[in-house]
Every structure is written in C-alpha cells, then in structure tokens.
Design a protein around this nucleic acid. Structure first.
Lengths: 346, 346
DNA sequence: TTGTAAGCGTTATCAT
DNA sequence: ATGATAACGCTTACAA
C-alpha cells in the first residue's frame, strides 16, 4: 500500500492536517515544520493521491477533448495533431491534464462526454468541431460545465465560448484570389458538409462569386471524405462538366492532395491546367509537389486559444463568454496561376 | 450540488449500499429493487462520481500515454495519430480512458509520468518510444505499474511488455530490395538517432550490405529531424560525395518527402536518378508524387496491440511479459527503380 | 436480499 | 501555527 498523508504525519510527529498544509505550501506553517515534513515525505517516498484530493476539492485539473465522430476520421486528418499541439501547450503551462474521447460513432462519443462530465472526470471540455444537430454542445450548456468549441456554433453563440477562423471571409478571399488571377469557373470541394466550417466556406465562396458577378453553379460545389473512393468520383464529375472549372478551392489539404493525384492521372497539370487553393496549410501542403497555395488557418493557435478559453472559464464560470477569431493568411505557393485560357480545356 | 447515491437511496427507500449494488448490477439484488432504484436514478438524474469510486476501488480505468519529449515532435509526425488511433480503438472496446502527457521536454514529461503514476491517475501506461538513457521506463519498472513500450526496450526486455516491428529485419529487407534492383551505393537517413528504432534500422541496413558484400560507408548514414534545416544539408552532403548514392532508405515518410523536395530542386528525379524507400507508409507516402515505396509498419496495429498488452497486464499484473512483433510489409510504389547506370550521375 | 458502518486519502472547519 | 474531526461519494465487509 502506498504511503499516505497519515503515515507521513505519524513519522513526522505532526497531524495529517499539517502534512496537508505542507503539501499546499500553506503560509500558516512554520518553515521549520515544513522542512521536517518535507524530509519525511522524501524519505518515505510519499506522493499525493490525486483522486482523494479531487474528491474533496472537486477540481480535476483535467480537460476533456471531444473529437469528431470517428476518432479515425479526426486522427487521419493532420489538422488534429496540430490543434492538439496547441491545446497541449497551454494545458501544460497551466498544469492541466488532457483526456481524450475514444469513441468512433457520434453516439459513443456522446456517451463518453456524459461520463466525463457527470462522472466529474474533467473540469472543462473542448469540442473540436461544430456540427448541425450535434447533441454534445447542447448537453454541455445544459450541464453548465465550462467548455469551448473550435468552430462556429450554430446557435446560442452568445452563451458559448468559441475559437474559430473567419471561414466565410477566408474562403471569400481565396475565391477572390483566384478571380483576380482571371479564373471564372471555380469549383469548391469540401469534406463533410455537415460541419459548419464547410458551410461557412461555401458561403464565402458564393459571396465572392456574386460580388464579381460570376454565376454560382451548384455543379461546382462538391464534397468527399478522405478514405472513401469519392475523391476520384468528384474529380470525374467536375471534369465531365461541359464548362469545366479552371480552379478549385479545396477545404482540407489532404483532400487537395487526393484531387491533385486524380488530376495528374488524367494528365491535367497543376497549376497550368488547374489552379488549386487548399485549406489548413499543414505539412502536406508545404511538401506536396508542387507545394500548395493554402489558407493557413493557424491550427496550433486555434487549439492554444481554445484551451485558454476553457481554463479561464473554469477559473471564473461567470465570465463573459467571448469568442476568438484567429486570422487566416494565404500562403501563396505553386498551385495557383494566372488563367491564360491555354490550359488543357479552354 | 450533484445527486449522490444517498439522495437516490433516500428517495427510493433503500440504503446507499443497495444503490451501489444496483449500479454495479450485483446479482444479489432483486430485479424489483433494481427497477425501482434505476427509475429513481433516472428521475433524479443521478450519475456516478467517478473519483469517489476510484478512491475506494483503486482503479481508474485510464491509461496514460507518454509521448516523445517535445509533444511538438511527436505531434508533427503522422505516425502519432495513427498509433493513437490504434490505442484508442482498443481502449474504447474495454471502456478505458486515455490521458496524454503534454510536456515538451524530457524532464517535464518525466515529471508528468510521475504525477500520473504516483498520483494514481492511471492504471497503466504506454510509452510511445524507446530511447537510450530514458528515465521513464526504469521508473515504471521500479514503481511496478503495468506498462507497455512501443519500440524495443534497451534492456530488461524480459521484464517489459513491448510491441514493435522487427526493425532490423524490415530495414534489411528494404536494403535487399534495393540491392536486388541493382543498387550498390545505398544511403540510410534516419531521424533522431537516439531512438532505438533508428539503431535497429541502421543495423539491418548494414547487415544487408555486408551480406551482399557491399561496403558499409559511414558517409552514407545520415540523419535529420523534420522541422530543422538539416534535411537540405543532409542531401547536399550526400550529393557532394565522390561516390554519390543511387538509392536511399529514409526512416520516416515525412523526412522522405523533405528529401524528395530537395532532390527535385536539384533536378534529380525519383526514381530515375535516385530510388527511395521510406518507412511507415502513412498517407504521406501514399499520396506523394510519385507515390513512395514504403515499409508499412502497421502503426495502427502497433497501437492496438500495445493497449491490449497494458490492459491485460492491468487485469493480471503477474502475467507473463510477452512481447509482440508486428510484421512489416513493403508497399512497392513508384520511388524505386532498377539501377541502370544511366541516372544523373552514374 | 438488504442494511449498517467502516474506510479510501484528502481537505476544510473549527478549536486551541 | 497546529490538531481533531467531519466531510467528499463511493464500495465492501459484516450483520441481519
């Protein structure tokens, strides 16, 4: 059996409460006693039992991270490690631990969240997505537990702390970037359209088109998820259109890579025949051939700010529910080119 | 204040222990009582306080995951999400939670491990690396807590559960694969040589060379870490050698990507002028241009088996300390070609 | 089958 | 500045 506070107390000839006070470095304990007790703790190899402390203090110093349904999905996307890195960094600064959901369906993840929250295993939660008809966020509101969302919540935005890019704006800028290069037939390829981030980006894309009096063609808006065969299909559909697009905005750089591969199979060269802008600017877009023009969403920062939000909220549950917008920047690399009308099919 | 077992007991006109027994679905409680108690729990919105249970049962149903020093390093490598996915999958099956280290130095990670273990926050631990002079593993042995290592431990292998590929063999096979294609000047590029996995792969590489009576040239053995400028330097050094290599084995596909980029800058074509085999077969090697010939280390499986090991070990701490070797397979893609002597510099 | 009561290892309150 | 004692919310002998 492990050494407890009582064992230490006995050996140091003090009471358990004194030992406890030494642990928290209370200023009501004399330096002399502190030294003595600390020495005994050292000798006996004492270490605090975290669970006992949690039970009485009701603070776990742990935050739970809720991934998208299908951890697999989340974990396949290089977005995840990067956001986790940001979360992790701030948690480390504040000495918080991180607990991860493991489920692979919406339902099992929801159950885990309930277990985390009701089981008092976490002091706060970060939800890594925002999705239509999602039950997690409403549940967290109801439970009144500190949480932050990465992405833009669909409702009650005033009651929710969230960290997001201005995806509408970012996508609008990406579109305008292409328009300024002379492109008129621009396609938008998302991943799962159920997530708000995709909706926002579609909106920004459409706004830009309208602003420049270009037609909004539903046929140009596609989506597929990495890992399915649909990448190929999407490319085929787009290329079989009578008016083929000359540029694409692709909402995740993994997907952009898939598209580029499919294009190259068909001898369509990027950026000569097709311009591409991807989102996220992960290592993938930096190292692809050719390196991608990509919207840097500053994923690390997204994570960092999110954990900052929750941890502050834990400290003051009544605090003003601010939301944080992380700026995006276009990394102009080599997958975008001026439209010259001399591409494969113009 | 949350609803406790006592509140439920009172309302259901039973004793707290009865409620407790209903929670654990004890077979000594009548169906009738169970139904009644469950209904009251439902009505009152009861949910178990996990920490209280942990305190008495001494089981947290949580495993801790120890990343390489610098979470950033770990998290930048697509190996990590994949191994986590495997760990996560088995943990989910067994209803275990996952807790992550957040530190970014060897020292801070070690402290976190101590906190996890001594603070009784985890029942077991998975160490995601094996490294010379690492303090974590010896500590875990000393504490006698169930743990598993992903990678080959440097000593006391009989006392340690570990899951690994046969990296010596895998690297040997990779080398022989290239030799059979006619290559004689083969370079090996690792990442951090402090990790055992790199040592093993270097050994396998050298074994193969010797077996085929090829010279082992120290100048051909290089290493660099992603994120540093050293990738460029390594390529430059290799290319300035009087006897330039015609093939490379690169110990992580992110690094391979960096090398390929540097080669392409110098108009050296893969595989025409240079053959490349990478390790890990992540999405990166699958989608690179050209797609890489890569050793699939079955990272997911590595994670899955590791969590299986710890969780079994938690169930039976005296169990035989087996080790699991996950087979590797060469994915033959387009970065390797027969050596024809007509490359850039032959 | 159910209840009583002790105990898990802390911290917090109230004395001293 | 320190000690005694009662929580915290649960499980588990032991008793009934």
């Amino acid at each position: 059996m492990a050494v407890t506070i009582k064992d230490v107390a006995k050996r140091a000839n003090v009471s358990p409460s004194t030992v406890s006070r030494v642990i928290t470095d209370s200023n009501k304990i004399s330096e002399k006693t502190k030294r003595k007790v600390r020495q005994v703790m050292e000798e006996m190899g004492y270490h605090i039992n975290f669970n006992a402390r949690v039970l009485v203090q009701k603070s776990t110093q742990t935050i739970g991270i809720v991934m998208k349904h299908s951890a697999s999905h989340s974990l396949h996307n290089p977005f995840f490690p990067e956001v986790l890195r940001g979360i992790s960094a701030f948690c480390h600064e504040k000495d918080y631990s991180i607990s991860l959901t493991t489920g692979n369906s919406e339902k099992s993840i929801f159950n885990e969240v309930v277990k985390m929250v009701q089981g008092r295993r976490v002091d706060g939660v970060i939800v890594l997505y925002s999705k239509k008809d999602d039950k997690v966020v409403p549940y967290l509101i109801k439970q009144n537990i500190p949480f932050a969302v990465i992405g833009k919540p669909l409702s009650e935005t005033n009651k929710i702390m969230y960290v997001d890019n201005d995806n509408v704006q970012a996508s609008k800028e990406a579109t305008e970037f292409l328009i300024k290069l002379g492109h008129q037939r621009i396609s938008f390829i998302g991943d799962d359209p159920e997530f708000q981030v995709i909706q926002d980006r579609i909106n920004g894309y459409q706004e830009a088109l309208k602003l420049h009096e270009l037609e909004v063609t539903e046929d140009y808006i596609k989506s597929f998820e990495y890992g399915t065969a649909n990448g190929k299909q999407v490319v085929e559909e787009l290329l079989s259109l009578p008016e083929k697009p000359t540029a694409m905005i692709i909402s995740a750089d993994v997907n952009a890579l898939v598209v580029m591969k499919e294009l190259s199979k068909r001898d369509i060269y990027v950026p000569k025949d097709m311009s591409i802008i991807s989102f996220n600017n992960t290592i993938i877009s930096q190292l692809s051939t050719p390196p991608m023009t990509s919207i840097d969403t500053q994923t690390y920062q997204l994570g960092y700010e999110a954990s900052k939000c929750v941890i502050e909220l834990i400290g003051d549950p009544e605090m003003f529910k601010r939301s944080v917008i992380i700026p995006t920047v276009i990394e102009n690399r080599e997958t975008t080119a001026i439209y010259k009308g001399n591409g494969k099919y113009n």
